[in-house]
Amino acid sequence: MKPMKLIAAAVATMTMVSGAVAQTNLTAETASPGGATHLSLAHLTEVAGTSGVANIQLADGQTLTNSIQNVAEGKTDIAGTPYILPFLMSRGVGPYGSLGKEKGAELASNLRAINPFVLGIFFLFAYDSKGIGGWDDLKGRKIYNGPPRGGALTNARSMIQIVAGLKDGEDYEGMQINWGQGATLISSGEPDAVVLPELFPSPRLTIPSAAGKMTGWSMPIEAYESEAMQKYMKAPGSAPWTSSVASIQDVMGEDWSFVSEDDTFRAFATIGGNVVNKNMDDALVYDLVNVYIASLKDLMGKAPYGETVGYDFPMQGMCGANPIQYHPAAARAWREAGFEIDDCAVAQ
């Protein structure tokens, strides 16, 4: 995005709300603090209030499976979500099995995106002391690959199977533990390697690295470009992710090394965003997204991972099998600020 457009958006937004007192009261639900999901909505809560657009009562630490159903049913105004959840809701499967396909599809059709973020980037990493040689050196190893259940575990298992041709329980010993204990497990040295969705940086990367130097491996080019992986990365809530090795190295510091066949680090990301009900007032949605876009620089400066989680990439993970589309007023705000959003990503 061009700096002058961002400045213009900020000026226009502040002019619009100058001297205003927020009259609209909204409710919002998000994940626990510490990740891109929480930071995005916490920031929106702040700028919406200070600019006079809306007072948002934010509840964090919520189960997002329930949160987006609350938005779809009109019980909550805004919620964060990985985009796989609206997909499952639209089919009445998984955590939404009790809704059934018809009711699930009806509720999912009520959801509209307003802004994007990356929840985590799946890659392989290990302590240097473990002597791991990369993706082709995982057979027979102990690999921490997620919590006991859920999408992260499924994604990590699938990534290992597609890249390394190995199955959990047959070719390696998968280790699962709840998210809150992840950094402790890694620091214990019990797993030989780790495949998880992370941010650059996240506590599960920075805390264990205090106990020893670590290495992260890019997905091999052949595996990344394979038909199986390209198809997998197009699944709802997933998207290809690349970055220069140098930029990741700069963020992570001297305790980390990163390995790739060239200067690009390849992985896939879990994509999500904040959603509202399709019936939210157009002017309100436009104003909310406007003040959010105008303050993107501040948002990205609030966390070390702020530049890497796609806060300013509204097309990431959209269209295709993803049933979520942008609220028309949100899309208008993004487009007027100079961002590209394809028509397939905008609800009519």
Score class of each variant (00 low, 15 high):
Met4Arg: 10
Thr13Ser: 10
Thr13Ala: 10
Met14Leu: 12
Met14Asn: 06
Met16Lys: 09
Ser18Lys: 11
Gly19Thr: 01
Gln23Asp: 04
Asn25Leu: 00
Ser32Leu: 12
Ser32Ala: 15
Pro33His: 03
Gly35Lys: 09
Leu39Ala: 14
Ser40Tyr: 01
Ala42Gln: 12
Glu46Tyr: 14
Gly49Arg: 09
Thr50Ser: 15
Ala54Ile: 02
Asn55Asp: 01
Gln62Met: 14
Thr76Lys: 09
Ala79Val: 09
Gly80Pro: 00
Pro82Asn: 14
Leu85Tyr: 11
Met89Gln: 05
Gly94Met: 11
Gly94Ile: 05
Pro95Ala: 11
Gly100Thr: 07
Glu102Asn: 03
Gly104Pro: 15
Gly104Glu: 01
Glu106Gly: 11
Asn110Met: 05
Leu111Asp: 02
Asn115Pro: 04
Leu119Glu: 14
Gly120Lys: 06
Ile121Asn: 06
Phe125Leu: 08
Ala126Ser: 15
Gly134Ile: 12
Leu138Val: 08
Lys139Thr: 08
Lys142Ala: 08
Gly146Trp: 04
Arg149Ser: 14
Arg149Leu: 11
Gly150Trp: 04
Gly151Glu: 14
Arg157Leu: 07
Met159His: 07
Met159Val: 08
Gln161Thr: 02
Ala164His: 02
Gly169Glu: 09
Asp171Asn: 14
Asp171Ile: 00
Tyr172Ala: 07
Glu173Leu: 15
Glu173Asp: 14
Gln176Val: 11
Trp179Gln: 15
Trp179Val: 15
Ala183Gln: 13
Leu185Met: 15
Ser187His: 06
Ser187Gln: 12
Ser188Met: 05
Gly189Ser: 13
Pro191Ile: 09
Ala193Lys: 12
Val194Tyr: 03
Val195Tyr: 11
Leu199Glu: 13
Phe200Tyr: 13
Pro208Ala: 13
Ala210Val: 03
Lys213Tyr: 03
Thr215Ala: 06
Trp217Val: 01
Met219Ser: 13
Glu222Arg: 11
Glu225Asp: 08
Glu225Ser: 09
Ser226Thr: 04
Glu227Tyr: 01
Gln230Arg: 10
Ser238Gly: 03
Ala239Arg: 02
Ser247Tyr: 07
Ile248Gln: 06
Ile248Glu: 03
Gln249Ser: 14
Asp250Ala: 15
Asp255Thr: 13
Phe258Thr: 02
Ser260Met: 08
Asp262Cys: 05
Ala267Asp: 07
Ala267Ser: 15
Thr270Trp: 09
Gly272Asp: 07
Gly273Arg: 03
Val275Glu: 02
Asn277Pro: 01
Asp287Asn: 08
Asn290Ser: 14
Val291Asn: 05
Val291Lys: 05
Ile293Gly: 06
Lys297Pro: 00
Asp298Trp: 01
Met300Asp: 12
Gly301Ser: 10
Lys302Ala: 15
Lys302His: 03
Ala303Pro: 07
Tyr305Glu: 02
Glu307Ile: 10
Thr308Glu: 07
Val309Glu: 12
Met315Ser: 10
Pro323Ile: 04
Pro323His: 00
Ile324Thr: 10
Ala329Pro: 05
Ala330Glu: 07
Trp334Val: 07
Gly338Gln: 03
Glu340Lys: 10
Glu340Gln: 11
Asp342Met: 09
